[in-house]
Design a protein around this nucleic acid. Structure first.
Lengths: 226, 226
DNA sequence: AAGTGGTCTAGACCACCGA
DNA sequence: CGGTGGTCTAGACCACTTT
């Protein structure tokens, strides 16, 4: 819990009650106004707490009828306790998740890439090969893969990808921006890997593209675990 | 935009400015207090608008220093315009997303399932075979797959799966709960499909499990497109 | 008609940042 | 130090649901 955040009394009280099973799924909670009275806080403060719990799937609020304990309380509590916020999460899980769906994305991109896509893919590969600095390099790699997600035209997967990238950046540098150059060895290694993915896409060869994607992600998993 | 929601004047004004490129990445916005004066609304209302835009990645707020246009404005605007809210979305994209990563999940589950997992999987399959009503049937199918995600111990993917399911339920019944029975044909069909997935998992055979998962999802994709 | 959550207001204090 | 966003307050009106 953050400091000075969201009326901690009511928040922890509700959270404990939900975890202990004092509140059962579907059960109706007291009204916002009565919570405000009970805890000696304003209705606005109560609302912020309830809004937070609703976003986390623990409760449900219905205009005109009341606030209720979520039907799927167990699962919600579990993901809550896991601290899964989709904007957080640990690196290993994110890489693993990419390993789960990115080969499909790459294969699909290889299937549907047109000449315009291919040209753009080349351009983005160029940027990775000759980046201005470390940040530009990272962004370039991200843009390379993002294009593949765009080609699939599945905005849901694209969004998930963006979330993963965003989460990682938040972790890595909290505002400072390292202007270091990128090691030539690392860069060439990356370019080779991306090239191996780009080439079968240019030839509209889904099988080869998928294999190259798997190989790339296997390397990433290795580097994460060391 | 919802009705009566979040001071639409300021909201659309900022959105247009961000889209038109009047505001450039990194640029500093006016203060909350000055927005409140300009638009003749309270500071609280301004904050709710800014909070909304920040959650969507369009702007950044820093205590003590100000509000700024996001560095990755282009991508944020794009996903925003896509209307991607992760809690909404269209059915086809969600099914497609599952097709992208669920085979990996099933294969991984087959790799690591222990006897306890297998027993639980049987139990959940039983529920699908003999549901109390339509709702119980749906929940049973969901629980079957959810267990597979749990076995992988990747809370990120589990969370994504939960989000997809939650989105679908919100769409399907907006509060009413159909108590209809489940057609015997449909039910048996589903049980056969799940059986085909469960069996290779019990034998710890990832390849067969993955193939069964693909087959199941192919059917789902077909049924969505008809 | 009465009660509920959704939103807004005007004002206040705080922790934090930059000069 | 003054300015900024973060939070809270007490009160109000609204649209909606339930009785």
């Amino acid at each position: 819990m953050k400091q000075g955040a969201h009326s901690p009394d009511l928040h922890t009280h509700l959270l404990n009650a939900l975890r202990n099973g004092e509140l059962t799924p579907g059960q109706r909670l007291p009204t916002e106004r009565s919570f405000a009275d009970q805890f000696g806080i304003s209705r606005g403060a109560v609302q912020r707490v309830l809004q937070d719990l609703e976003e986390k799937g623990l409760i449900l609020r219905k205009v005109g009828s009341g606030t209720f304990v979520s039907d799927r309380l167990d699962s919600a509590v579990e993901t809550f306790d896991h601290g899964v916020d989709i904007t957080r999460g640990n690196l290993a899980e994110h890489v693993e998740a990419r390993a789960a769906f990115e080969p499909w994305v790459v294969a699909t991109a290889a299937r549907y890439a047109n000449s315009e896509h291919k040209q753009e893919l080349r351009a983005r590969l160029e940027r990775v090969a000759n980046p201005e600095d470390w940040l530009d390099y990272k962004e370039g790699v991200y843009q390379f893969f993002r294009l593949l997600y765009e080609i699939t035209e599945n905005s849901f997967l694209l969004h998930i990808f963006d979330l993963i990238i965003k989460a990682r950046e938040d972790v890595r540098y909290g505002g400072e921006r390292p202007k270091t150059r990128v090691s030539l060895v690392i860069r060439n290694n990356m370019v080779r890997s991306l090239e191996a993915i780009a080439e079968p896409i240019e030839q509209n060869n889904p099988e080869k593209a998928e294999a190259a994607s798997r190989e790339f992600l296997d390397k990433m998993i290795l580097s994460v675990n060391t």
